[in-house]
Design a protein around this nucleic acid. Sequence first.
DNA 1: ATTAAATTTTAGACAAATCTAAAAATATTT
DNA 2: AAATATTTTTAGATTTGTCTAAAATTTAAT
Lengths: 218, 218
Amino acid sequence: MLTHTEENYLKVIYHLSQTEDEGISTNAIAQKIDTKASSVTDMIKKLKEKKLITHERYQGVFITTLGLQTAKMIIRKHRLWEVFLVNKLNFNWDEVHDVAEELEHIKSEKLINALDAFLGFPKEDPHGDPIPNSKGEIPYREKELLTETKINHKYMCVGVKDTSAAFLQYLDRQKIALGSTFTVLKHENFDHSVTILFQENELTLSKVVAHNLFVKKI
Amino acid sequence: MLTHTEENYLKVIYHLSQTEDEGISTNAIAQKIDTKASSVTDMIKKLKEKKLITHERYQGVFITTLGLQTAKMIIRKHRLWEVFLVNKLNFNWDEVHDVAEELEHIKSEKLINALDAFLGFPKEDPHGDPIPNSKGEIPYREKELLTETKINHKYMCVGVKDTSAAFLQYLDRQKIALGSTFTVLKHENFDHSVTILFQENELTLSKVVAHNLFVKKI
DNA sequence: ATTAAATTTTAGACAAATCTAAAAATATTT
DNA sequence: AAATATTTTTAGATTTGTCTAAAATTTAAT
Ligand SMILES: [Mn+2]
Ligand SMILES: [Mn+2]
Ligand SMILES: [Mn+2]
Ligand SMILES: [Mn+2]
């Protein structure tokens, strides 16, 4: 049985492993968890003891198959609870993260599977992130960043890379939501901003924004 | 901000206070929490420090107004989550307690009020226990134990005093649920069992059972 | 009113999760 | 290759919640 803290560390290690084939560094983990490297070293020993990760001194951390499976179950819970909050309790997509961060630690297989069924087995959370099924399988969905799109093609917004409240609220103000469709008009070479035709208006999105919006050609 | 443990202690103290006007003894708390008296003494100091209880050495514990209000909010959460599990996720009434024991510690005012609304502002949980509203007001409902009923009157089952899975499963086997109606036929003087006419059959319930069933005259 | 029994508190220890400061190992510059 | 900088680990301390064993206090019994 894992503590909340162990689960939070494992989730961070899982996410860092997604974009890194070398060992995950102590510092990288410390930065994500917002703690000290020495605390991470302590926790690494515990997770290693529980066979969730492997680790050699100074060599970085690798997640094991068990760790991977465990992490995916925590992420499954996090994302299902987010769907519940948005679809059933009318939370906005910028309000769900902190609560889901707590709810993801509730330990009941029956609960999470019943919740999954109650929500109609959703494939994605309110930020467009895929929800692992009860076996830990993650549904794949084609998507690319807005920065990588081709001009004069039509796209649909299918996810956000940055899930911070600040970014989500910015999108709300631009009326951009998951499912929004638009045509890419121009990629500005100078500042890498992207101009789109959205709801009959031209809208220019900065590189920061474009680089955090997942879209799909339609 | 209270820890899960502090909240669990406070809830136990609240419940013990309901049937006791003297101070709550260290041992009584220890027994409910399933811990040692010395641990309780330690926790008493913390709860006193936070003004949730008052305490003089060897004199037992009294809950304060702040402690009372805080306890009621935890109980509100516990019971609302139980309603959610039974009404929305199809849990049986004997399966909800342990999960609710975890869910009650999730800290979000918005969440619990949204859940309350989503459930249609229920007045009682799946065991017939009243749900405090957002102000901490507890709806009153007339009820008495089956042992205190009068013969030849009709009653409706409105609650259980013992909420253990074992008792709830016993009631399931007898087909007795909240809302069930019956006529009291006889109080047996010798063993204090109660015979009722329920669904056209005579059913004799032992003292233990009758003393844990709340009913209301109809 | 003593004595005996039960309850409650204190003292000291331990595991979990954190921190600071210092040491050890690795990586980067010159 | 040596010197310097960075990263990582260790050592030792702190807080929370728990425990055992012993002391203090209250309650019950003789
Ligand atoms: Mn979390
Ligand atoms: Mn999400
Ligand atoms: Mn609890
Ligand atoms: Mn209940």
